[in-house]
Amino acid sequence: MIGDTPAPAAAPYSGNAVEGHGLVKNFGSFRAVDGIDIAVPAGTIYGILGPNGAGKTTLLRTLLGIVDPDEGHRTLLGADQPLRMARQVGYLPEERGLYPSMKAFEAIAFMGALRGLPLAEGRRRAKAMLEGHGMGASVDKPIRQLSKGMAQTVQLFGTIIHEPRLIVLDEPFSGLDAINQEKLEALIREQARRGVTILFSTHVIAHAERLCERIAIVAGGRIRFEGTPGEARDRLRPQVRLRTRTIDGAWRRALPPDTMAEDGAWHFALPDEGIEPLLRALIDDSAGIESLSIERPGLHDAFVAIAGADAARAMDAPREGEDT
Results as ranks from 00 to 15, higher is better:
H207C: 07
L299M: 07
L146N: 08
H162Y: 08
A269T: 15
L59Q: 08
G249Y: 00
R296M: 06
D301T: 12
C212Y: 02
G230W: 04
A216N: 04
L279G: 07
A186H: 15
I36Y: 00
D140L: 00
L242G: 04
Q81V: 15
L299W: 04
Y99L: 09
G55T: 11
I294P: 09
G288S: 13
V89P: 05
K148Q: 06
K103L: 02
A79H: 13
A311C: 00
L169V: 10
A307Y: 05
R222M: 03
V204M: 02
T324M: 13
P297M: 05
H300N: 11
L114D: 02
V240Q: 01
P6I: 04
T259G: 02
L199M: 07
I167Q: 04
I215K: 03
T44C: 05
G308S: 00
R233N: 00
S138E: 13
F110I: 10
G308M: 08
G274I: 11
A104H: 10
P256N: 08
L242P: 07
A54C: 04
D263V: 01
E322Q: 12
A11G: 05
G298P: 02
A107Q: 09
G78N: 10
E121T: 14
G112A: 07
P238N: 00
T202Y: 11
R61K: 11
A311N: 06
L49Q: 03
M135D: 08
A186Q: 15
P82C: 08
A107K: 11
A151Y: 07
G249A: 12
A120Q: 14
I45E: 01
T58S: 10
L83P: 00
I223Q: 01
F30N: 10
P172N: 12
C212D: 06
H133Q: 14
I161N: 02
A42D: 06
R165E: 10
K183F: 11
R296F: 03
G274L: 10
A104L: 08
R144K: 14
E273T: 14
E322A: 11
N26P: 03
D263T: 07
L98I: 03
L187N: 06
P271H: 12
A287W: 12
D80W: 09
R87T: 02
L199D: 14
D285Y: 10
A54W: 03
A309Y: 13
P172G: 15
R115P: 07
T197P: 06
L282K: 11
L49K: 03
T62G: 11
E171W: 02
T57M: 02
P82T: 12
A269K: 12
E94F: 12
P93V: 10
D301R: 12
G134M: 01
R252L: 15
D140K: 07
V33R: 13
G35D: 00
E231F: 00
G43N: 06
R224T: 04
P82Q: 08
I66V: 15
L63F: 04
P41R: 03
G50L: 07
T62E: 03
A208D: 01
M102Q: 09
Q145A: 13
V154M: 09
A311K: 04
P6D: 06
L119S: 08
H267N: 06
G53N: 01
G72V: 09
D177V: 03
E226Y: 00
G274E: 09
G22N: 13
A307S: 03
T153D: 01
E182A: 15
P238K: 02
D80M: 11
Q152M: 06
M135T: 02
H267K: 03
K141G: 03
Q155L: 11
R87Q: 05
